[in-house]
Nucleic acid binder design. Sequence first.
DNA 1: ACCCAATTTAGATTTAGTCTAAATACAGAC
DNA 2: GTCTGTATTTAGACTAAATCTAAATTGGGT
Lengths: 136, 136
Amino acid sequence: MSFTAKELLTKRGVKLTSQRLVITEYLMQTYEHPTADEILAAVAEKLPMALSRATVYNTLKTLVDAGVIREVLTEPGRTRYDANTSEHHHFVDVKSGRIVDIPQEMLPDIQKVLGDKYNVKSYTVTFYGDLNEDSK
Amino acid sequence: MSFTAKELLTKRGVKLTSQRLVITEYLMQTYEHPTADEILAAVAEKLPMALSRATVYNTLKTLVDAGVIREVLTEPGRTRYDANTSEHHHFVDVKSGRIVDIPQEMLPDIQKVLGDKYNVKSYTVTFYGDLNEDSK
DNA sequence: ACCCAATTTAGATTTAGTCTAAATACAGAC
DNA sequence: GTCTGTATTTAGACTAAATCTAAATTGGGT
């Protein structure tokens, strides 16, 4: 049901390296939708081995291409990453910047409403607003 | 019904300058969702006066803050701009990169479905897929 | 015409991301 | 286990997008 990072990479045909494993593991256990630099900082500090900026970017590209993670675009100029690859969307709390996952099932299916003219392969919905804290 | 750039800026409390006018006019007559650099290139070439990069960025920020234009985030690392401020969404043709406006009315209203926990102020839907060319 | 605040400007700076070429790691053949 | 070739990682140079700075310009109000 729920895969380890190692199983997931293998399943998706990504060769195992310690850098790829540790980046994937980090993304799987955070809900923070971190940027590449945040990933570098977080992973580098808990690692004995070195980890270069280029490797973080290379690895993120590899993982996105393999479908292991997704890019999240919610603000200008920064790309964030999300290990949740189930179909889902995002809610941005505009005060804190916190990004919360919104499962596909919470929304009506709008994939089909566009009709023949548009062959929709995927879509993302990004909500902006205030997250009601007491119902966290 | 349909405003001139000058009327729109005045209505929104943005002081008139020739740079602001010409950038707003350019955005109002294109459907290309251009980046800041594309705006600079397009506007600079048809202008007698100079126009600096900083002014383009300053002006775009001013116009976004005043609600005259919107930012469009469809791809990593590049911010695009759209003078269509009616509630609408975007379809990205993944082959050509062309971005097409999708009016709010084409979609079910998903503003309300999230319930009390989320106070949605705005949302954007971005579709990715193939645009069927013969029905253009 | 003068003044003051807002705007524009060139260019330096910052930040996100890419590229390059050398070093390292790893899987398969033996 | 060692060899060998390809893939991966690396440091650091580089590029591109956006911001900052401080000086020059503009333009409305008197």
